[in-house]
Nucleic acid binder design. Structure first.
Length: 495
RNA sequence: GCUCCUGUGGUGUAGUACGGUCCAUCAUUCCGGGUUUUCAUCCCGGCGACCCGGGUUCAAAUCCCGGCAGGAGCACCA
């Protein structure tokens, strides 16, 4: 009835935008007039592909709302995940490479300790925090049984006294912790009097032995987000309870908690269980060459192989911000990358497992010209001098009649090839090849399972630039990383 | 055990707040074809999905209830 009326009055009102996929990032909730976002990694290694989601999504929103982004190093643990001094600048570089710009504000939690310590003392003084002397195991029982820990009822003055002992270093590690006094009867056990600061006497790589008490993530992060005026927190949904814990703290301090969004767990099919600390120890054991080893899921490795930052941006934008736990494949990233680089990569030949053959014929052309790029996106030709001796791939040798790309039709007999004509005369297979004079020894490193396969071959020695990604025709994309004793070293990218 | 999150083709995603026009979008993979002196790029076509069971309703991917499955937190890690 209503619908029938509408059809008369305003038929366009019934038109619904269907069959359309939403483009770009979903709108941010809340006040978006002055967006401040943050990206907060632990500086215990360079950024990995997993971190890249945070960089891409946060920078995407910063751009969308003309907001600011804070890069904060959460380096308040010297024991379990100790900071790596070099990692701070690595991360800044990785961030800039990926987002195309530096962060608006860069801070290290370790440099902001006075603020956290002051806030902790305030919390204790106001009776919202207390020094708990229970052992971890002991407290676990109280938490599980919804029982108050005896330390909970201590007088504020006593708590402040013990806090002073913690700060001064008089208390040894493990003998005291500052807890936020929420409630022990909360249905969610994670929120019951959660720990905010603990004693750590081991030196910090940045500030040394200056501090004896260090905040845990939930406390440090909560305080710092407020100090920086963060309006929107985008974090993994494994940190949902952090939001709940921190909200309780904010309520106590009379602050208002930022809008919070979450993403789910991401697994990259090709990279099973890599953790920053795991990679770190594998590298020091010599199992990998370094953080940019092509088998590693670090941004440095992807960069070294030849991935463009735009490809990561496309990937994460396509995935968007969802709370689903997902499992993605490098194939998807590679598809984006192929599209991004195909038009800008010069073509070259790489003859793997080369076989030398002699070419014979009446009038062998003395030179060959092959386009730098087949679609003319890059102008110009690769020009070679040609004599009798050439290399072709061992696997191409089995064919009898072949065409040497952009050169001549041939027929192979043993290790000799007869030229049948320069023009293409039929649709015999076309292979890539190299005159001996233009060939340079090369090694291509192809990650394969746990190891790296070293593919020996000859690379076309025509205007090679170190650091450049080339598309090797009929082979795939690879990056020229160096020329070592005359041997070109290539790192495989993808097909 | 307690608390929480998520379930749309092989993978990822749109649609779900306001139920219909959704025989369900787009990307990627895969399959087939076209262009191409690369097994690249590009173009065309195809296969393929609403976790299950009830309920409400003329009508459910969408609302309700109950299952099931996957993931996370309950660290003196981040």
């Amino acid at each position: 009835m209503v619908r029938a009326d509408l059809e008369d009055i305003a038929p366009e009102a019934l038109e619904r935008e269907k069959h359309k996929k939403r483009e770009g990032l979903r709108d941010l909730p809340g006040d978006t007039s002055n967006v401040v976002l943050r990206f907060a990694p632990n500086p215990n290694g360079p950024l990995s592909i997993g971190h890249s989601r945070g960089v891409v999504i946060n920078s995407g929103y910063a751009e969308k709302y003309d907001g600011k982004i804070v890069l904060r190093f959460d380096d308040t643990d010297t024991r379990v995940k100790p900071p790596l001094l070099e990692a701070y600048s690595w991360i800044e570089e990785d961030f800039e490479w990926l987002s195309g710009r530096g962060a608006d504000v860069i801070i290290r939690a370790s440099e902001r300790m006075p603020i956290y310590l002051k806030q902790a003392k305030k919390m204790i003084a106001e009776g919202y925090g207390y020094v708990c002397r229970c052992e971890a195991e002991e407290f676990r029982k109280f938490r599980e049984g919804k029982l108050d820990c005896p330390c909970r009822e201590k007088k504020i003055s006593k708590n402040l006294e013990e806090w002073a002992e913690m700060e001064s270093g008089d208390l040894v590690e493990g003998t005291a912790v500052v807890r936020v006094k929420t409630s022990m009867s909360l249905p969610n056990p994670a929120l019951r009097d959660w720990p905010a600061l603990r004693i750590q006497h081991s030196p910090h790589p940045v500030v040394g032995e200056k501090y004896k008490v260090w905040p845990l993530l939930d406390f440090q992060s909560a305080v710092e987000d407020h100090m920086q005026g963060v309006t929107h927190i985008i974090r993994g949904k494994d940190l949902m309870d952090s939001t709940r814990k921190q909200t309780l703290l904010y309520e106590h301090f009379g602050w208002s908690y930022p809008e919070t969004l979450y993403w789910g767990r991401v697994k990259v099919h090709e990279f099973g269980g890599f953790s920053t600390s795991g990679m770190s120890s594998s590298i020091s054991k010599g199992e990998y060459d370094g953080w940019d080893d092509p088998r590693l899921p670090t941004l440095r490795a992807l960069r070294r192989r030849g991935f463009e930052p735009q490809s990561l941006i496309s990937l994460w934008s396509e995935i968007g911000l969802t709370q689903k736990d997902i499992s993605i494949s490098m194939q998807t990233l590679e598809a984006f990358n192929s599209k991004n680089i195909d038009g800008i990569c010069e073509r070259r030949f790489f003859v793997s497992e080369p076989v030398r053959i002699q070419i014979h014929g009446e009038n062998i052309p003395s030179e060959a010209k092959i386009a730098r790029h087949p679609d003319g996106l890059i102008l110009g030709m690769r020009e070679w001098g040609v004599k009798n001796s050439i290399f072709i791939q061992n696997e191409d040798l089995i064919q009898a009649k072949l065409r040497l790309k952009d050169f001549a039709d041939i027929e192979i007999n043993g290790s000799n090839a007869q030229i049948e004509g320069e023009e293409r005369s039929d649709n015999r297979p076309i292979i890539h090849w190299l005159p001996e004079e233009i060939s340079r020894e090369a090694k291509m490193f192809v990650p394969e399972g746990e190891g790296i396969r070293e593919l020996a071959g000859m690379i076309e020695d025509f205007e090679l630039t170190i650091g450049e990604v080339y598309q090797f025709e009929r082979v795939g994309f690879a990056r020229l990383v160096k020329i070592n004793n005359g041997v070109a070293e290539l790192v495989w990218l993808h097909n």
